[in-house]
Design a binder for these strands. Sequence first.
DNA 1: AAGTAATATTAGCCTCATCTAACTTTTGTC
DNA 2: GACAAAAGTTAGATGAGGCTAATATTACTT
Lengths: 155, 155
Amino acid sequence: MPENLSASLEDYIESIAELTGSSGVTRAADIADKMGVSRPSVTVALRALASRGMVNYKPYSTVSLTDKGRKHAAVVLRKHRILSRFFNEILGTDVELADSAACKVEHAIGEEITDRLVDFLAFIDNCPMAAEGGFEFNSRKRQSFREKGATNEKD
Amino acid sequence: MPENLSASLEDYIESIAELTGSSGVTRAADIADKMGVSRPSVTVALRALASRGMVNYKPYSTVSLTDKGRKHAAVVLRKHRILSRFFNEILGTDVELADSAACKVEHAIGEEITDRLVDFLAFIDNCPMAAEGGFEFNSRKRQSFREKGATNEKD
DNA sequence: AAGTAATATTAGCCTCATCTAACTTTTGTC
DNA sequence: GACAAAAGTTAGATGAGGCTAATATTACTT
């Protein structure tokens, strides 16, 4: 029972977290549909997550996260959200690209980078200078730094 | 002969690019040493890269990049460098962490995100406001936005 | 309560990326 | 120029992650 999750297993636990709404429960078929993988792949992933104590799994039954699994999912989802916000709000990409890039990058950054990204976004949100005229790549103002002539030559 | 490179093959081509200095040539053993993998793994990777037209490879001989390989390496190295700078100069992590995070993230972002990151860094570099007192997470001034009270509560 | 539809698992196969051990080729040294 | 050392490759294994086809279980419907 190893402790660490591969990128793939992190994707599974993330999807499971999003699928278990009020009921706290989801099914293998829903996971397969959401992730675009086959049902047998889900079975294998579920066993791997169960062996790590991340999900409650019994064959032919519904699936739920354990406390440990919920905590792990929260870590991944936090990375996803901050990255998506950074790509969209700071870099000015559209929401879809921001989200799909976040999906990949979330498996590649650790806690320190994540924490600093969170601080950075909070700083921009609270920065009086960013709120005014001169520095407006503030929240929801897309592409603003690009419009200000960020590039050196062309334009 | 597929066209796309996996994260692993991108790492190989990146290392080869860094090892082929003035001579334009390197050896399998050097690649293995640099990357911390076994020599047979290098042989396999070299064959995969050769089949994609990225390296000049003959058994028992030296290795060099083709034009195509050099171009591909440049794309990856550009991502690496801009990410490393972002993590270090903007987020304020130490150089080692910035570099190791860049190593992983470089395989997860595409051209659009990279372009925007390049523009963003250029903007910060040229921003008069960032150069003065109020907004100094400018080049090489590490952790500056954190020192300014970026976090909301604690501190 | 029986039978069908839906859901899940097993079995068997594939690719990628890695490894160790054994073998081959090249290199360099006397 | 022969032979040992260094370098490279082949052979064979492993593990993760995915797939399809076939089988098993559960659930619904009448």
